[in-house]
Every structure is written in structure tokens, then in C-alpha cells.
């Protein structure tokens, strides 16, 4: 039943822009943020809150802009290379940060992300400073497309990636490594006594989460056509945590549900009032208070668990 519901949701997402073309950009951006929020949600399973994952989102988006400026014009190459940049950044940052827990982990992620933000904002000669960098429209398998055609390709590719990568992450979370990750939250001592190196389990999760945030950043860069330092600002990281919690960390769809809900709510709220933050805030409070497992909790059920 849940599979049918998920498939139907993807179909609805796929056909929505045909009736409301303006939604295509909103949905593309929502999927991009959904990938990044999924990265944050993976770490949340281990009880680790990263208030800095926008750094990977930005690193990848800037990666696209840099590589495009240096003559790489192929869409697939740009996408893959930018995710690799984010993953490598995740290896370096994660090697230091996975030793920490709780507030220290959260704050150190925030601190490192603000270093990234400062570098993007201050190295004007390289990054364009607060003006950012343009992301040109790349060729797709050698074909030069118009902007609307490329945006179509980007949207539908994002949708396909959401399904394929979502299934991959689902399998990861259901694997021994994924269960070990969840176990970090409850009992590190037992993990150690099972012979499991907790730091390795966390580093793998951190790199996967960085790569996911990177994928989201690359898609956002292509969709917006420009990358700016604000991509790495701490409020952007906070937004990702919010999306992850709102959607729920019980399953992979949660991050995307949260991102779609928030983007659509935001889009609707700004058309109603200038005080759109009020509407968004009230909705968030309602979800957090009445749905402790997030929006995904409405659809999920625990696997054969008895209490």
C-alpha cells in the first residue's frame, strides 16, 4: 500500500508542472533541499545534529560554477564531479568532526560551515564575493538546450534521482551498517564491544550525507543559475535540520516530504501576506507538537514491532 502511495506521489509530482509550469522551479528546488535534508536526517539517526550541512550544499554548487567556468560544459560530468567535491570535503571535515557528540558536533559543524561562508564571501577575486558566480546552462549528452528545455531535463532527472538514490539510501539504512549507525544513538559501548569501530560507521554516514547535500547543492545551482555565499550561511543549515525534523527521520521519504511541504507552504504563504513567516512558523509548531515522528509518521508503521 505504501509503495503504491509513494509511486502515485511521484507520478503526481511528475505531471504537476504540466498544469502549473511555475511549480516546476519550486519542486526542483524542493527536491534539491530534500536531498540535503536527507543527508542531515541520516546523521540524526545517530543522534547527531549538523547545523552546518549547507557547507556541502554550497561547496558542490560552487564546484559546478568553478568547473563550468573552466570549460567543463557537460551536465552529467558537472553533476558527478560536484558531488565528488562535496564527498571529499565531507571526508576531510568528517574525519575531525565524527569524534564529537551532541552540542559539540552541532557547533563545530556550524563553525566550519561559517568558515566556508566567509571564504565564499570574502575571496572576491575567486568566488565573486557576495555577488556569487553564474552557473551557465550546460550541454546534455552533447546537446545544447534552451533554458526551458534544460530546466525540464533538470526537473525530471531530479525526480528520477530522488527515486533511485532514495531507494539506495533506504537499502543502506536497512543494512548492517545502517543499523549500526542507528545504534550509535543508543549504545556506543555495546557497539565497541561488538568490535565495531564507531568512528568508521560515523565517517561513512558523514560522507554519504555530505554527498547527498552536495547533490542537492548542484541541482539548486543549476536550477537557480547562480551560486552565492548565502548557500553556506548557518540559517541555510538550520533550514535543512528543520526540513529533516519536519519530514521525519523514520524513513527516506521524510526528508523529501518535509522539503516539498515547506517549499509549497512558503510559496503559498508569500502570496497571502508579507508576514508569511508567521504562517510557516505556525505550521511548523503544529507539526512538531502533534506529529512527533514528522509528516512521514502519518504514513509509516514500525516493522513487526511489539511493545
Amino acid at each position: 500500500m505504501r509503495v503504491v502511495l509513494a509511486a502515485a506521489s511521484v507520478v503526481v509530482l511528475a505531471i504537476l508542472p504540466m498544469f502549473a509550469p511555475w511549480l516546476q522551479f519550486v519542486l526542483t528546488l524542493a527536491i534539491a533541499k530534500g536531498f540535503a535534508a536527507l543527508g542531515v536526517a541520516i546523521l540524526l539517526r545517530a543522534g547527531l545534529i549538523s547545523i552546518g550541512h549547507a557547507m556541502f550544499f554550497a561547496a558542490s554548487a560552487y564546484g559546478v560554477a568553478f568547473l563550468a567556468a573552466r570549460g567543463i560544459g557537460d551536465f552529467a560530468s558537472l553533476l558527478v564531479l560536484s558531488v565528488v567535491i562535496a564527498a571529499l570535503t565531507g571526508v576531510i571535515v568528517g574525519a575531525f568532526l565524527v569524534r564529537y557528540r551532541a552540542i559539540f558536533f552541532a557547533m563545530l559543524n556550524l563553525a566550519v560551515s561559517m568558515v566556508f561562508y566567509s571564504l565564499f564571501a570574502k575571496l572576491y577575486g575567486i568566488t565573486g564575493g557576495s555577488d556569487g558566480m553564474a552557473v551557465p546552462i550546460p550541454s546534455v549528452f552533447g546537446m545544447v538546450l534552451s533554458e526551458p528545455a534544460f530546466k525540464d531535463v533538470l526537473f525530471y532527472l531530479s525526480l528520477v534521482l530522488m527515486v533511485v538514490i532514495g531507494l539506495g539510501i533506504h537499502r543502506y539504512l536497512d543494512s548492517p551498517l545502517g543499523h549500526a549507525l542507528s545504534a550509535v544513538h543508543t549504545n556506543e559501548v555495546r557497539l565497541e564491544y561488538l568490535g565495531i569501530p564507531v568512528w568508521a560507521v560515523l565517517l561513512i554516514a558523514y560522507v554519504v550525507s555530505a554527498a547527498l547535500a552536495g547533490l542537492g547543492g548542484a541541482i539548486a545551482g543549476f536550477a537557480i543559475g547562480r551560486v552565492v555565499p548565502d548557500f553556506a550561511f548557518w540559517t541555510a543549515s538550520g533550514h535543512l535540520v528543520l526540513v529533516a525534523v519536519l519530514g521525519g527521520i523514520g524513513g527516506v521519504p521524510g526528508a523529501f516530504i518535509g522539503a516539498l511541504f515547506l517549499e509549497l507552504l512558503h510559496t503559498a504563504a508569500v502570496t497571502v501576506t508579507d508576514a508569511w513567516n508567521l504562517i510557516v512558523g505556525a505550521a511548523l509548531i503544529a507539526v512538531i507538537m502533534f506529529m512527533p515522528k514528522g509528516l512521514y509518521g502519518l504514513f509509516a508503521r514500525e516493522k513487526g514491532a511489539e511493545r
Binding site: 536497512d174 543494512s175 548492517p176 551498517l177 545502517g178 549500526a180 561488538l194 568490535g195 565495531i196
Partner: peptide
Amino acid sequence: MMLSLAAKDGLWTMMRPLE
């Protein structure tokens, strides 16, 4: 139990289920 069993012989698999 299954995580303990996997710790002995198959932790480093990301794409195979625990169960």
C-alpha cells in the same frame, strides 16, 4: 541479535539487508 551476528561476519555491506 542480528547486528551482533553481522558484526562478526558482514558489517561492511551497505546494500545487503541486515535481515
